[in-house]
Design a protein around this nucleic acid. Sequence first.
DNA 1: CAGTCGTGGCT
DNA 2: TAGCCAAGACT
Length: 370
Amino acid sequence: MITPDQYQTVSNLLLIWFEANKRPLPWREHYTPYHVWVSEIMLQQTQMERGVAYFTRWMQELPDVSSVANAHEDFLLKLWEGLGYYSRVRNLHKAAKVIATEHGGIFPEDYAAIRALPGIGDYTAGAIASIAFNQDVICVDANVERVFARLFDIDTPVKQKHNMEFIRKTVTAMLPAGHAREFNQALMEFGALLCSKKPKCHLCPLNLFCEAYHLGIPHERPVPVAKKEIKNITVATGFLVHNGKVYIQKRPETGVWAGFWELPGGSVEKDETPEEAVIREFMEETEFPVRIHDKITIVKHGYTTYRVTMHCYFLTLAQEHSPEPVLHAATAYRWVTMDELDEVTLPAGHRKLLDHLQTDLRLAPLLENS
DNA sequence: CAGTCGTGGCT
DNA sequence: TAGCCAAGACT
């Protein structure tokens, strides 16, 4: 068990380890507040490698806060496409506008002002204040929680209130004044690289201080919480082609994939075939009478707590029918060319279908007559 | 405060 | 294959 008189030793070991082992990351070059902010938002619930790829592309298009504030949301969404949790990018946009209008375009340095920005909670506010501005504040993420669950052998779920209070209190006591930038990153990087899901205790500079290591149960910490049930669902969607163009519609501004363009479709109900479902869904959502021209493929993908099997069809209008839909599940619609389809933002499952279609030779004849 | 909000990779 | 993530915020 680490005692308060050992805190300084432990934090020194962490700082030394970090200096020798930190990964070279784009936002670690200059610690520009804007870079730190975008990186922290992108890395929420996201793996490092993907985050870096999106970060690099983002910065090529949007080099500073004002370019974000002035950008159209559709453009930001397109840069975020495939990364998930899209409220993050909407909040990034809102926050950039707040910085432009209320902070003169300069990223605020005051903790309360940072914390007040849309999309920034306790963790991210602490991360920006410490990493960008080197202020003596803590930031506790899942990595830090895991490290402390092991160091102090916390035998109840770490998220419990008393555990979080203990961790925050202890991190605060360990934080070496004037070195929060390095210390907070050291703690998180240590959790990510060494004290990871499968801990590398034989390489760990803190193993002699670690209660779970002494007990031989580091892999049993943190105590797992009950996981949400993953539901398998079957859906059907269709690629409705008319006069060489494809029908898409815009999702509502709330809920999953808010404001995204998509192909109509929905769940395959009990006692219903996917073919029946796609026809029914088009009728319910657009009042288009469609007929199935051909089956394209089956796409498997997942989101939040669902595993989706998506049956995909080529569709045409069932009879001579106006290409004007009656919208029941969308806020707008478009008939687009394949090139235009590449430019709109689609949910990853539909994007997967589009990628499949690029190689589908049956597509060309359908798109010819216009 | 428990539910919602994505995704591709890893084992 | 199917589960399980990976630097949370918001309601």
